[in-house]
Structures are given as structure tokens and as C-alpha cells.
Design a protein around this nucleic acid. Structure first.
Length: 527
RNA sequence: GGUCCGUUCGUCUAGUUGGCCCAGGACGUUAGGUUUUCAUCCUAGAAAUCAGGGGUUCGAAUCCCCUACGGACUACCA
């Protein structure tokens, strides 16, 4: 696939809360597209709605991408030649273009109060009017610079009356958006309303104007964003024209939405709480309510797994390969392979991806996670208090810990499962699974186990294979029931019928501990 | 309501220039195998009349039309 020159794309979130995985995927696709073509990927913060600003949201966004390994080339927190990258810091830039549109007669002042706007909609509704919009068919009945005399307008502005600037859209024109994913989309200008571009209340533009001005000033080549923007794309095309920038207008690509796993509709924050999976990359604490929302990071997902899983929602490489690193994704990514229809989020697949990445990791790579869980368990006292006990010795033996990881890694999906998979290496069972006792334990079991204890006791070489061969030979020679003996042995050492190869466990916990546990089980279990 | 977008196994999807597709892969699911156990792993299977209907064509999941259904948007939010 040929490279496109001078690619510059941006991710432009609003700091109105934590970043949701739909947004993360949009950012990811932008990033991949930029890397694929050797272009630049920028982060712009769209904070033109001062009323919705949420403390900490911006820091959250930066931290989330740092965790995911998605790096920006320019933008908030990084800097760059086209800054500032935060819209609230670009006020004066927008004002210039608002004035230009006003001068050209492509925009006008409107003084209607929220109550008056509300009344207008109610009136239109009552009249069964087809459109409830502020547009060419209704603006002549409202208070704006098209209906008021120049003197009245001047007076109102000088009096400090709040106003907005609306884009003047005339009917009867077909607007065309050439979308890279959806093809040609046509819309009649009649259905567009006279969008508010600027509000005097805070001196800031609204999304539509700020977006177009910034994309132009920052030399954005491709606008890759969610499908929810498709309906307003024709308006944006028109704005580029109003500002005389049609020639350099970026290409558009509207991504399919991420949908709820059950039912239909956009994936939302609530779905995560309701269905019990994270909707955010990182945990988020709502500064107002203090409520926590789960995050992939805190739930134990690897960033590589989250990236890989997200990349496959709405896109695929067209081959049967499913595991891709971020670098590999950047190599094969293309917008032509992005789907048109929305993708339902699938938790099972997310789990599977994490498992795949866990299995791919070296034992050394996940040792720190194992150690921190062990430390936490040690601190809570579940392994006893004696600083020199068996568990303490084992914890300090890195070689053994790596050996244990090798034994249990394949059985896990997350590193957080370490304790449930390895507790028996550190803590002797005190209770025994009743079901196993019922099924396997019998009156003569203690006798047989003691015979095996004797075999273990005399064995100088505590090697898993050596012990296995020795005990198997004993079982065969005495015509004992292999399944029964082995399960009772496991029950004695682990407390239940789960876990890795028995003799590997014995090799690690050692002769003394093994014998101690079997003795305890024989004394404790009665039938 | 209006406008726009979409519709292949339960889910993510392959299928882009019509024939190799009575539709392939993955997740999940079922069965069997491996294992002393659980998990992993391996093998096999079930699972989409390609939303429905009508065309065009020797031939359509792939092209055209209609219908249905779903979604997004419809703020001085982004």
C-alpha cells in the first residue's frame, strides 16, 4: 500500500470526564494511520464548553495513552509548532474568523434568549411544522441581525446583551461529503439549521467553528472520528467553504460505533457498571460523587491486549492473524479495511486476548506482578508470622518463584489470578475438599499414603521425575488404584483436586513440607 | 417526526474487480483426546436459506430497486 504524504491527524477529546474505550479506539485508529504513513498524530483538547469541564479529565487522558503506549507527536502536554493545543487558550484566533464570517454576511448575530428559543420550538411543534430548527424558514421571526435594524443590533451589543453568532445556511443546495469509509454522502442544505458558532457569554466558539479553524491552522490532513459526527460533516464542509479553505479541506473518515454487548445502541459508562466490565482504560473516581468506575489497567489487563482487542473492533487485517503488537498494527492498518457497521463489544474476546498476551510473556516479565501479590499476602499474615518459615524462604528464592510461574502461567488469564493458582506452594491446606474426600478417600488410604511417605523420605533426590517414577512403580507393584492414590495425595498437599502436576509441587515445597502435609491430612481426614 | 448511516454463524469478522462460497477464520459453545485432578493444549462438531422481496445475469452474499429492522444525529454539548 502506498504511503500518503504529509499525513497529520488529531485526536480531540473534551475534558468532560474519563475517556471511554470508544474514544480510545478512535485515537488508536488515528495513531495507526499516522504511523502507517509516517505522519504526525496530535492531541488537542476541546474545552470550549466551560460548563462541562471536569477536574482531572485532561490528566486522565494523558495517563491513559501513556499506559497504552500510544504516543502523540504534538499537542497538549507535548507542545509543537502549531500550539496552543487547548481550545480555551485560542480564543483570539477564533474571534478573528467569527468576525470574518460576520463581515462576509455568512453569519449573523442572534439575541434570542433560551426561553424564546424554547417558545419557538413549542410553537413549531404545535403547528406541526416539519422542522423545529432555527433556519432559513424561521429566522425571520426571531431576534437577530437579519430582522433587527443595524442600530438596534449595535445598541444591544454595546449594552452587553448576550448574543450568539449563527452560521447563515441557505436552502436549496446539495452538500457532498466524500467519506473514506462510507463513500459519497449527500445532504440537502435545507435540513441543516443555523448552527451557533460563537457565544458571547464566554467568548468561546462552539465545537463546529473551533474544530474547523483548528484543523485548518494545524494543517490536519485527515479527520478520523466517530460516526456520530457524520450528520454534521456536511455543515463542516460548508464552513470550510465559507472560510475559503475548500482547497485544503482535510479528508473525512467516520468510524463505526462501539455498541453495547447486549441489545443495541452506543456503548456507555453505565453498561460497564451494569454488565461488569470496564468501559474505561484506567480507573476513574468521579470528583463530584466520589464513585469509582472500573479501568482495564486496574482490572489486570495488559495494555497490548487492550490495544489489540480494540483494533479488531471495526477493523481487521484480512488475514487470519489475530495477535498484533502496536508496531505490527501500524504496519498493516488501512482505512479501507475499516467496517461500516457498528461493533458490539465482546468481553469473552477481551479475556481471551489478555490470556494470549499473558502466555506470550516470559516468566521474568511477570515475576514483579507475582512478587507484589506475594508481598501483599505476606503483609496480611496469611502465610504466618515467622519471618524464617517455609513461605518466607520460598518468597526470597527467585529461581523457585520463576519455576512456579512456569507451572501456572498457562492456567491463567490475568496475573491477578496468581494467588489462587499458587497459594498451596506457600500455605499448607487446613481444610480438605469434601467432595474429593467422599469420592476418593477410604479407610486404607492413610496406610497407602504412609507407604508413599516412606518412599519419599528415603529419596535423596527430590526431583519430580524421579519421584514420579518411583511412586508409580510402587503403585503398579501393589496393584493400587492410581487415580485414587494420586487424588488423595493431591488432596493432602493442595486441599482440593486442582493445580499443576503433583510431583512438580512436591519438588518445590520439598521433602519435609510434603511429609508434614500428608501426615496432617491422614490425621485430619476421617471417613 | 425529519435527515443520514448501516444489515453475513450468539459475537467479532473473511468475502472488495459477480463464478474457486450450498459461505472461511476467531471468541463462545458441544463432544472426544491428553492429564492422577482442574486448567492449558490438541482434534472433531453444531452454528449464518448472506435482513426480506423483486429484478439484471448462463451465474449474486457480491450489481440495481423496494420494504423491514437497527443505529446515529436533530443544544448557546462535544
Amino acid at each position: 500500500m502506498s504511503k500518503i504524504e504529509n499525513v497529520r491527524v488529531r485526536f480531540a477529546p473534551s475534558p468532560t470526564g474519563p475517556l471511554h474505550i470508544g474514544g480510545v479506539r478512535t485515537a488508536l485508529f488515528n495513531y495507526l494511520f499516522a504511523k502507517k504513513h509516517g505522519g504526525a498524530f496530535l492531541l488537542r483538547i476541546e474545552d470550549t464548553d466551560s460548563t462541562r469541564f471536569v477536574e482531572g479529565a485532561e490528566a486522565y487522558i494523558l495517563e491513559a495513552f501513556a499506559w497504552l503506549g500510544i504516543a502523540f507527536d504534538e499537542g497538549v502536554g507535548i507542545g509543537g509548532p502549531y500550539g496552543p493545543y487547548k481550545q480555551s487558550e485560542r480564543k483570539s484566533i477564533y474571534k478573528k474568523y467569527v468576525d470574518e464570517l460576520l463581515e462576509k454576511g455568512l453569519a449573523y448575530y442572534a439575541f434570542d434568549t433560551p426561553e424564546e428559543l424554547d417558545a419557538m420550538r413549542k410553537r413549531l411543534e404545535a403547528e406541526k411544522s416539519r422542522s423545529l430548527q432555527y433556519d432559513a424558514s424561521t429566522r425571520q421571526d426571531m431576534k437577530n441581525s437579519l430582522t433587527l435594524s443595524p442600530e438596534e443590533v449595535k445598541e444591544k451589543i454595546e449594552n452587553g446583551t448576550n448574543y450568539v453568532v449563527r452560521m447563515k445556511i441557505d436552502p436549496g443546495e446539495t452538500l457532498v461529503v466524500n467519506d473514506l469509509i462510507r463513500g459519497k454522502v449527500e445532504v440537502q442544505s435545507d435540513i441543516l439549521d443555523d448552527k451557533v458558532l460563537y457565544k458571547s457569554s464566554d467568548g468561546l466558539p462552539t465545537y463546529h467553528l473551533a474544530n474547523i479553524v483548528d484543523d485548518h491552522c494545524m494543517k490536519i490532513s485527515h479527520v478520523i472520528r466517530g460516526e456520530e459526527w457524520l450528520p454534521s460533516a456536511p455543515l463542516h464542509v460548508l464552513l470550510y467553504r465559507y472560510l475559503g479553505w475548500s482547497e485544503s479541506m482535510p479528508a473525512f473518515a467516520h468510524l463505526p460505533l462501539l455498541l453495547k454487548p447486549d441489545g443495541n445502541g452506543k456503548l456507555s459508562k453505565r453498561d460497564g457498571d451494569r454488565l461488569g466490565f470496564p468501559v474505561f482504560p484506567l480507573q476513574w473516581k468521579d470528583p463530584k460523587t466520589g464513585d469509582f468506575s472500573q479501568g482495564y489497567r486496574e482490572n489486570g489487563y495488559f495494555p497490548e491486549a487492550v490495544v489489540n482487542m480494540l483494533a479488531f473492533l471495526g477493523w481487521n487485517p484480512g488475514t487470519e492473524q489475530e495477535l498484533f503488537s502496536l508496531e505490527e498494527l501500524a504496519e498493516v492498518f488501512s482505512l479501507e479495511r475499516v467496517n461500516k457497521s457498528g461493533a458490539k463489544f465482546n468481553l469473552d474476546k477481551a479475556l481471551w486476548y489478555n490470556q494470549q498476551y499473558l502466555h506470550k510473556k516470559s516468566n521474568e516479565a511477570i515475576l514483579p506482578a507475582f512478587k507484589s501479590i506475594l508481598k501483599e499476602k505476606w503483609d496480611t499474615g496469611v502465610m504466618g508470622e515467622d519471618a524464617k518459615n517455609e513461605a518466607a524462604i520460598l518468597i526470597s528464592n527467585e529461581k523457585k518463584l520463576l519455576q512456579i510461574i512456569g507451572l501456572v502461567k498457562e492456567r491463567m488469564h490475568f496475573t491477578k489470578e496468581f494467588w489462587e493458582q499458587t497459594y498451596f506452594f506457600f500455605v499448607a491446606p487446613t481444610t480438605f475438599d469434601e467432595k474429593v474426600i467422599k469420592k476418593r478417600w477410604s479407610a486404607e488410604t492413610p496406610t497407602h499414603l504412609q507407604q508413599i511417605v516412606a518412599l519419599i523420605a528415603e529419596e535423596p533426590n527430590m526431583d519430580a521425575t524421579v519421584l514420579e517414577n518411583k511412586v508409580n512403580l510402587f503403585i503398579e507393584n501393589n496393584a493400587l488404584n492410581m487415580g485414587k492414590i494420586m487424588n488423595c495425595l493431591r488432596l493432602s498437599l493442595v486441599g482440593t483436586s486442582m493445580g499443576p502436576h503433583l510431583w512438580d509441587i512436591v519438588e518445590i515445597i520439598g521433602k519435609e513440607e510434603t511429609i508434614k502435609r500428608i501426615d496432617f491430612a491422614c490425621k485430619t481426614i476421617s471417613c
